[in-house]
Design a protein around this nucleic acid. Structure first.
Lengths: 153, 153
DNA sequence: ATTTCTATTGCGAACTATTCGCATTTAGTA
DNA sequence: TACTAAATGCGAATAGTTCGCAATAGAAAT
């Protein structure tokens, strides 16, 4: 564990409120890189880090892949971005959605469909109670074949 | 796509039946390595490749990590093993369970609890119909904190 | 039991995803 | 405008996984 000495933590209440109004209430500095990354994943969902970087470099050619990773990590910690896990051995990212949703992945063409299901929330509450867990996240992923890919098999 | 020329495919029916009785109906050759890997993941659930390899080497010190990866992959294709995805950027494996189950992971101590929920199956059928997908797999994962870890926070 | 055929293995190198250290730049203050 | 710490870019390091290939070893045929 390292000690995080965040500017905000040292401020008095009045200043803190002011600070929190900058950059989307996160207390993070506004940078072109971060804004662009945020914009890209807001526009297109469940990209992986490399895809984010490639898209971003169209506008900021010198953007570093490390920065992309660091930024996604930071935004995830701030709760603005969610990491999703498909079958692949790397992560995908998306802006935190208003309503909880889940993923249906076609193994043929790779398309990802998002779907909502209030039952999932119910399961979550139920599991939390049954196992006495404080549940912080849940992810439902289904894989299969879309109509088109099924036909061409 | 490469052409798979499997011995069994060339056999006549009579011989084929005989072959299928060897090594658990899979048509795979019986090897010490494969048997050991299978035994290890049957005994202990959701290990990752490296953990499987370390445990196996207690008995077969020269076992190669590549073999572990290849074997898990093969067994997965044959439907004997399932790959599960936690938050980490690598896979975990378990023998295919009799009944579909899901995972609850404690972010504090890392323990994994398996739970069953027939509702999940219902959701699966429902999504399949609504989106016209042939669904081949589903995975539900919840993360949070167990009672013990919650107390020590 | 011996031979034959090819699946499987071990090894090291290659590859992909991710993180880290550090010098440099830059946003937000004072 | 100057100061300070956050954020960036770069290249190296690490972790997980796959690949190529020669050597080994199951299973079928003799």
């Amino acid at each position: 564990m390292r000690i995080v000495r965040n500017r905000n933590e040292e401020m008095n209440t009045k200043k803190k409120v002011k600070a929190l109004q900058t950059y989307n209430e996160t207390g993070l500095r506004k940078t072109k890189q971060r804004a662009l990354i945020m914009e890209i994943i807001r526009r297109e969902r469940h990209l992986d880090a490399d895809e984010v970087c490639r898209r971003a470099r169209a506008e900021q050619p010198r953007l570093s892949l490390s920065t992309v990773y660091r930024t996604l990590q930071t935004l995830k910690e701030k709760g603005l971005v969610e990491e999703v896990h498909f079958d692949e051995a790397h992560h995908h990212y998306e802006t935190k959605p208003a309503s909880e949703h889940h993923h249906l992945v076609c193994l043929g063409c790779g398309q990802v469909i998002e779907f909502c299901y209030s039952l999932v929330h119910f399961i979550k509450e139920d599991v939390a109670e049954a196992r006495d867990f404080e549940i912080t996240g849940s992810e439902v992923r289904m894989t299969g074949y879309c109509p088109t890919c099924r036909r061409s098999k």
